[in-house]
Design a protein around this nucleic acid. Structure first.
Lengths: 259, 259
DNA sequence: CGCTCACTTGAAGCAAATCAATTAGTGTGG
DNA sequence: CCACACTAATTGATTTGCTTCAAGTGAGCG
């Protein structure tokens, strides 16, 4: 996800250890003590950044490592026999990719950089081995996988029961809240996905996405200029998304802060 | 899933250990040696069977354990703020439920028995602890979670890109192959889900499911009588589902057996 | 028997897909 | 610098697959 005033990538950052990483409490080291983080650090490889359009891995390749996004963003998509693509994940800094490949040791999807993206590579055998000795790491891995399962199920609900407006609103609200967690603006950002990709992700066509954006804009909910989005009424968007009363990720909500 | 000539549940079966369980190689013990299976056995609790319509857990309840289906079947569904339900899982014997609750220790969905169902309860803290000491168990847990992620993504693709016929065909083919793995007939079975539930699961209405079944029947692909289904042309169904060339789960496929 | 419930079938309506035309940005080469 | 091709996005017109509404069937049950 390209962001408002993105920080240039410094070469020194490539050597940054987990313990100094700003994404520390979103990523794998969450809940580990300093010593254990050092041990985790030892198995993690920093890679040279991927350029936009470069593949991290392709569907069918043998699985050897998980990857954590450090900066930039990655989309994953799978292809069926007929050749149509389905985007099934958008990964932001601090998020872990490749979890769907563990069970048969082959990547079921391809991963491609949406912009210049730097990553940490975490060899899975070493990680499994290490997590045998660090209960906190072990638990955090389960948590991350569990979260992915739960969020896929939310997306499923979206697809099964929501109309175009509700889907796009939910997508934007979800993105907004994830950006906020990463200390980026939650109301102003650049989409790294094209309209076509958003449509694919949400099970809609590009025309429908475009029309729905226009509609939101005419209702004064947001402003767009190509990939730039400025949310003017986040609360209303949440309510369209069907998340009006769910403030679990939003400490602004009066009813929650009161309780 | 009610099955052709289902085996009556014997009381003695409740005491059966993992090592004698027919589901052994589909479930958690897969890949463990006899000794380790015994250790797993010690933490697992056999529960008295649930009757049809009884809840295993409800959305919002605190998560304490995973559950493995021994016989019968369970559906899980979540509810959004508007109160509409979304079925997000159908669990057959040997399959593990509750994985989506690990990350925030609360069940995001409810689980209800579709028929008389017996289960193993696996306290999660004990399981985590045990898997620290048994690498194979640890790995198997990752595999199971990874598989759930991958299968949710397949379902997502279904929802995003497939029409009613393709979705129902994919559902039936998937069910058929899972039943086969469990040594049940893959062409003749009873659906434990109602038409309404199938529709909900696939993001369609009951009327569309009914019409699509009728359509399949008139094309000679299958016969139905209420919940009973007999598949007459599994190959054609697979091709409708978009899985014609994918024989990964079907050892009948000549091109695969040849290789 | 009459009631309910699960399902089926038909007809009408609608949201989103498809088809189509236009605009605007991006890159290429003369 | 402009002409040209190419791609991404917007907007309008038309079509369509599924939903919604409606009516009816048949099994199961007190």
């Amino acid at each position: 996800m390209a962001l408002i005033s993105p920080q240039p990538i410094k070469l020194s950052a490539l050597k940054t250890a987990c313990k100094n990483c700003k994404l520390h409490d979103l990523c794998l080291p969450l809940g580990l003590d300093t010593l254990d983080i050092d041990r985790l650090d030892e198995i993690i490889k920093r890679r040279k950044p991927l350029q936009k359009g470069e593949y991290l891995f392709r569907s069918g390749e043998v699985f050897t490592a998980l990857y954590a996004v450090r900066s930039g963003s990655i989309k994953t998509y799978s292809e069926n026999e007929q050749g149509d693509e389905q985007i099934n994940g958008l990964y932001l800094p601090g998020e872990l990719l490749g979890l769907d490949a563990i069970h048969d040791e082959v990547h079921p999807c391809s991963a491609i950089a949406l912009e210049t993206t730097s990553l940490c590579e975490i060899p899975f055998i070493a990680l499994e081995d290490l997590s045998q000795h660090i209960p906190g790491l072990h638990h955090q891995l389960f948590r991350i996988m569990s979260k992915e399962i739960a969020s896929d199920q939310t997306l499923l609900m979206l697809m099964a029961q929501k109309n175009a407006e509700e889907r796009l609103a939910a997508f934007l609200v979800n993105l907004s809240s994830r950006l906020k967690q990463r200390n980026f603006s939650d109301i102003e950002f650049f989409l790294s996905l094209s309209r076509k990709d958003i449509g694919n992700y949400l099970g809609l066509t590009i025309e429908t996405i475009s029309r729905t954006f226009s509609h939101f804009q005419s209702k004064g909910l947001l402003e767009t200029d190509r990939k730039y989005v400025k949310i003017l009424d986040l609360h209303k968007l949440k309510s369209i998304a069907g998340l009006a009363s769910d403030c679990s990720q939003d400490e602004q909500c009066p009813s929650k802060t009161a309780s």
